[in-house]
Design a protein around this nucleic acid. Structure first.
Lengths: 146, 146
DNA sequence: AATAAATCATAGCTTATAACTATGATTGGA
DNA sequence: TCCAATCATAGTTATAAGCTATGATTTATT
């Protein structure tokens, strides 16, 4: 029941780009230094984010990544769904492919659906802006544990 | 972000024992047949449940496992915590051992704590009785997908 | 007392996934 | 033409999941 590093690092990265980016693109190299994640691993994760339309890229020198919307328009759910492979607590709720043949009689399915819902509701209502705003107070030096 | 088979099977097993047990112990062999889980794997999982006081055992012929309380006194959270190794979405929230050195400045910690809370609240408020009761209506043949 | 049915304990095994690292191609501004 | 960046894909290593296997111990029944 753990979020993987992909999801956690993606959140770090998006927060970093939200803070340090403006009209100019933010290079992954800079993100890597600030977030303490290897450039090569970030490249893999960022590819998921841009494939899913959360970031757009500019190639070549002076390039980098730019947000496609304002921080309050990104839910953490958007970010986790793009990078984890489905955030449902059981795989049969992730998509039609994993949907089980006897879902209609499974005694525990309803319970798992309920759990999925409280998780989804929570991650969908929290935005990047919320997280940034709450941390504005303790403005100083920070480090991520997760 | 998936619950493992240990947690899911433990829930199946507890439901099975709740339904099929009374004053007499329920043997794992019977549980194995009904739930379609291998006896050997069930033995491992049940050991976690009895270590944590969720079941008590009677050894020898005619033995098996008996519930220590009524189904409405078991939350699904009890069962998952006994069998998964901590249900928090990030390991630094599981226990003091994994607690991170710079938790006081981590910008995302509060978000994860909030997620942990909605999950805990949900699994703690749902009991075995709730699940059994909801399935009493569709009384017939059933199969678990999960 | 012997047998069989059960739990209990621990080790091993096989597969999948996580978490990266490495190599190199492509793009585009200075 | 550099060089700084993204992009694409393959390879590597470590860890954990998901079991299976072996055998000991306990206890009701015959």
């Amino acid at each position: 029941m753990k979020i993987s590093t992909k999801g956690r690092y993606a959140l770090r990265m998006m927060l970093d780009i939200a803070k340090n980016g403006g009209t100019e693109p933010v290079s992954l190299n800079d993100v890597a230094k600030r977030t303490d994640i290897s450039l090569k691993y970030l490249e893999q994760i960022v590819s998921l984010l841009s494939k899913n339309g959360l970031l757009k890229s500019r190639r070549g020198a002076g390039g980098g990544y730019i947000m496609t919307r304002t921080p309050d328009k990104y839910s953490v759910g958007d970010i986790l769904r793009a990078t984890e492979g489905g955030i449902a607590p059981v795989s049969c709720l992730d998509d039609e492919v994993n949907m089980c043949p006897h879902a209609d009689t499974c005694p525990t399915l309803e319970f798992w659906q309920g759990l999925d819902k409280v998780i989804s509701d929570y991650v969908d209502k929290t935005t990047l802006w919320d997280i940034i705003e709450k941390n504005r107070i303790k403005n100083g030096q920070y480090d991520y544990c997760i």
